[in-house]
Structures are given as structure tokens and as C-alpha cells.
Amino acid sequence: MNKVVDSAAAAVSVIGHGASIAVGGFGLAGVPSVLLRALLAGGVGGLHVVSNNCGTDGRGLGELLGAGQIARVTGSYVGENKEFARQYLAGEVEVELIPQGTLAERLRAGGSGIPAFYTPAGVGTLVESGGLPWRYHPDGTVAVASPPREVRVFDGVPYLLERSIVTDFALVRALKGDIYGNLVFSKAARNFNPLAAMAGRVTIAEVEELCELDPAEVHLPGIFVQHVVALTPSEAADKPIEKRIVRS
């Protein structure tokens, strides 16, 4: 039952070329940066990443993107990552942009064994009709576009059919965890982390504190987590701020 792995490198060694990975975090909050750097060091490429965004330049998933290890991103926000935008527009990476709430529900549904669901988000837009650029040619023309969604009307209201997401692996970060994989998240870090953990067939969690947990405080049960990596104090304290704003 003890799911603790000695190191981040050992934990991610099971991830191979072309794997699909759900990654927790929002901006730089709750990003499993230690696991991502271990993946960066391993040099595994062709990765299909599912995450709200792709980090920032030089942080989080942005590090793997800059190293050319990511082939496809499913997310809802290009964000502040200039290299992400450059690679997308240059046709170097495929990007499926979907509404943020839809992304969250696709991950949750995948982890719950629900193959698909209907949502009103995107009705009357290119999400419904298709044609959103997923990949560009180097000359700027569209190489791959999104397909149209199936539409069904319930009580006079149209809804789009969305497929759930299940990935080969998931990488998440938690404030606390125990040896059984039960996790507790801190404040805003409880964003996409539980959903990503649910969607992965094999989920690896880095935890800032490895300890015994009161069952009443658990946010995500250990049934969704296969491996746990305990961070060092310096790793746990490494929490960059995406945008620091002060008064003049």
C-alpha cells in the first residue's frame, strides 16, 4: 500500500515517448514543477499534454515546451507564454483550445468513467461548427482544424457533445499527502489538480509534506494516485509568482 517513490526521476521514468499527460495547476499555482523538471531531464519527447495552460516562458510546462518535448497541447489558455504562441503559430505544436469549464468537466468525466456529456458551452461558435485551427502550416495556413460537434436539443436548448479525457499519466502537486496517496491541496492550488489526477491512468503526485492525514480533510482519495514523491523543504518553498504587481 505504500506508494512513496524515492525520487521524482524514478517516478517519471515510466513515462515514454508520445505519452499523454494531464498536468495540474493554473498559471504557476499548484504546478508539479519538480516532476516536470525530472521529465525535462529525462528528455522524453512527443508528449501530448492536457493542462489549463502551458506554464510561462521558462517555468512549468514552458520548460518542456522550450526544449521541444511537447507535440500537442489540449488546454483553454495560451496565456503569458510567448514561446507557446510562437510554436503554435509556426506549426511546431498542435493546440486544441476548448472552453475552460468544458476542459474541467472532460477531465472529471474521464476520471469518473463517463465517456461523454452534453454542454451548452460553445453553442453557436466555431466549437460547434468546427474549423478552429489545431495546427498551422509554416506559411500560416491551417493544417489541422477542429471537427464539428454533435448537437442535441434538450427542452428547446441546444447542447454540444463533448468526449471525456483519459490520459496515460497525470502529474499533480499537493500541499500534503500520505503513503497511501490521499492528497490535500492548498487554496488556489486546488484548481485543476484533483481533476487531472482523476483523469490519469497512472497518477504521480509531488507533495510538500508527507504525513498522516485525517480522513475528513482529504480532498482526493488515494484510489486515484499510484505514486507519491515527497519534496525537500527547498523544493516545497519554490513557488514563483506569475505576475507581481505593486503600487507606485
Score class of each variant (00 low, 15 high):
Q69A: 12
S13M: 06
D155R: 14
D155K: 14
S234M: 03
D238G: 03
R190N: 09
A121Y: 06
L103R: 13
L35F: 08
V12E: 00
N81E: 02
G30Q: 02
L175Y: 00
G140P: 05
E208K: 06
V166N: 02
P215Q: 08
V50W: 07
V31W: 05
A174Y: 01
M198L: 05
V127G: 11
E96K: 09
A8R: 12
K243N: 15
A19M: 02
V5W: 03
G68T: 15
V4A: 08
Y159A: 12
N191I: 00
S112L: 09
S7D: 05
E217K: 09
C211T: 10
E96F: 11
L220E: 01
P194W: 04
Y88T: 03
V151P: 09
Y159L: 03
A237P: 11
G177T: 01
Y118C: 07
S186M: 11
D155M: 15
V127E: 14
A230T: 03
G18V: 02
Q100M: 06
L231K: 04
Q100D: 15
A29T: 14
F224M: 13
G130M: 07
E96S: 11
F185C: 00
Y88S: 10
T167M: 05
T167K: 08
A199H: 12
N193I: 13
G156F: 11
V218D: 03
I245D: 04
T167P: 07
I165R: 01
L61M: 10
A71I: 01
D139T: 04
K176F: 01
E162K: 12
E209L: 08
L39P: 02
G75N: 07
